[in-house]
Design a protein around this nucleic acid. Structure first.
Length: 423
RNA sequence: GGAGAGAUGGCCGAGAGGCUUAAGGCGCACGCUUGGAAAGCGUGUUCACAAAAAAAGUGUCAAGGGUUCGAAUCCCUUUCUCUCCGCCA
């Protein structure tokens, strides 16, 4: 959520930023500013009335203690009742304004960074080791064909016990998945991220604070009986661990990682996109987050990117990095990079990580603040990234390491799996 | 799920309708003292709100309502914590 004070001081900047997103409800900005003015006015009057009420109470108190005359006391009481009635009506008005203001503010996404353009040109894509993508395997099979050949996973079983869009991993692939999770966590911990093991059910406040409500409400599974959501990403419970924290500048950056399953309804996704394990309702993901000071957030964004690059290189993936354009940017993000790995069997790039700087957009709702060296209080910046999302990494790993008779395991994983091929 | 007891500042802890502007302690910061440190003494120390820097103001004792001229204190609702019973990996 943007701060109204920011919108007031940077109206043009906000409008320009929103235009890069092709955000159409621009009229909201001026409506917000008008409501904000109204709110201040009403709040000021309410304050003055409260001040008067407090003074009267004190006078009464003194009179009672000094055994003052009851006529005087009664007239003071009547005066106070008069103000009280006035306040009641104003209070209703005030609450309406606040609610209205919040509803409008909730619809405004974060302002993209200055570097972000509305549409991407070639320079937004960066392929550090493009030549490896030219590596070809004769008759490379997509992972669903490989699965038939080597008994890797079963979508039928997923459908049998749940519904379509759920998958069951078998034998060595099940262990390979555990190994990948363990490997990613180890890499993150080594890079000084603290591991958290978290609940998969989250309350409304948490979902609201990180910005999934109202933006992605329909993407989430909701348990009506207990008023809880299934987490769409580990970012939500992880970030919310820090909700309402007031840090000192010495505490920052906070670095945390978690492995969770993620649940997404993915309504409206059909066809080739959901083939095999490319897109599932439940998938495994290892997430990293950081909470930083405003002046260091882009430095740490770069650092997260090199961290993920390192992991992808160690697994010998051909990958590319894309800086998202304004129109592709997520609701809370000011800058996002997507990592895509090349999957030889499908002959296409698969998104395996999304790394974002949400600047102070999430911090505002999460009340993540810190004290500067001079003792001032300011909002933190938040960053999040996948390190990494499992099913697509798995798909690409299986496809890229296939030979005619077996699937080879990348070297760094063998200590985790205990085997070096699947056949 | 049933029965009871609780929730006060960074932490501990008093307060039970108006002399609370939340006692006292710990911690922290600064100062005095010292050759330096410890001890001692002094000062300060929640957060939020606006054109809000200073002075003043308003709100803030788990959250939201209510009673009252006046609520940390009384009433209602909700959330959370603890103890006991029940169920249970």
């Amino acid at each position: 959520m943007l701060r109204t004070s920011f919108i007031r001081k940077n109206r043009k900047k906000v409008l320009f930023g929103l235009s890069k997103r092709k955000f159409h409800k621009i009229h909201l900005i001026d409506e917000i500013l008008i409501l904000d003015q109204k709110k201040k006015k009403v709040q000021y009057i309410l304050n003055k009335i409260s001040e008067k009420e407090n003074l009267i109470s004190k006078k009464i108190s003194h009179l009672i203690l000094k055994r003052g005359n009851s006529l005087q006391i009664n007239s003071l009481k009547e005066e106070s009742i008069f103000f009280k009635k006035k306040k009641k009506d104003l209070n209703i008005e005030f609450k309406n304004i606040v609610q209205n203001l919040e509803e409008k503010l909730n619809q405004i996404p974060n302002i993209p960074d200055e570097k972000i353009k509305e549409k991407n040109t070639e320079d937004a894509v960066w392929s550090p080791n493009n030549r490896t993508t030219t590596k070809t395997i004769e008759e490379a099979l997509p992972h669903w064909e490989l699965s038939k050949k080597f008994h890797l996973f079963s979508s039928d079983l997923g459908t049998k016990i749940c519904r379509s869009g759920f998958s069951v991993y078998l034998g060595k692939v099940a262990k390979l998945q555990r190994s990948l999770i363990q490997y990613f966590l180890d890499q993150n911990i080594r890079a000084s991220y603290l591991e958290y093991s978290l609940p998969y059910l989250i309350n409304e406040m948490s979902v609201y604070a990180t910005g999934q409500i109202p933006d992605k409400e329909d993407q989430m599974y909701f348990i009506e009986k207990d008023n809880l959501y299934l987490l769409p990403t580990g970012e939500v419970p992880l970030m919310n661990c820090f909700r309402d924290n007031l840090f000192t500048y010495k505490d920052l950056p906070v670095r945390a990682t978690t492995y969770t399953s993620c649940f997404r309804r993915e309504s409206g996704s059909y066809g080739s996109k959901v083939r095999g394990i490319n897109r599932l309702h439940q998938f495994e993901k290892v997430e990293i987050i950081q909470i930083t000071t405003p002046d260091t957030s882009y430095y740490y964004l770069d650092e997260m990117i090199s961290h993920i690059k390192k992991i992808l290189r160690s697994l010998e993936f051909p990958f590319r990095l894309i800086r998202l354009s304004g129109t592709d940017l997520g609701f809370s993000s000011a800058m996002t990079y997507d990592f895509e790995v090349y999957s030889i069997g499908q002959k296409k790039w698969l998104e395996v990580s999304s790394v974002s700087n949400c600047t102070n957009f999430q911090s505002n709702r999460l009340h993540l603040r810190y004290k500067t060296m001079t003792g001032e209080i300011d909002l933190c910046h938040t960053l999040n990234g996948s390190a990494l999302a499992l099913p697509r990494i798995m798909a690409a790993l299986l496809e890229n390491n296939q030979t005619k008779n077996q699937i080879n395991i990348p070297k760094v994983l063998i200590p985790y799996t205990g085997f070096d091929y699947i056949k």
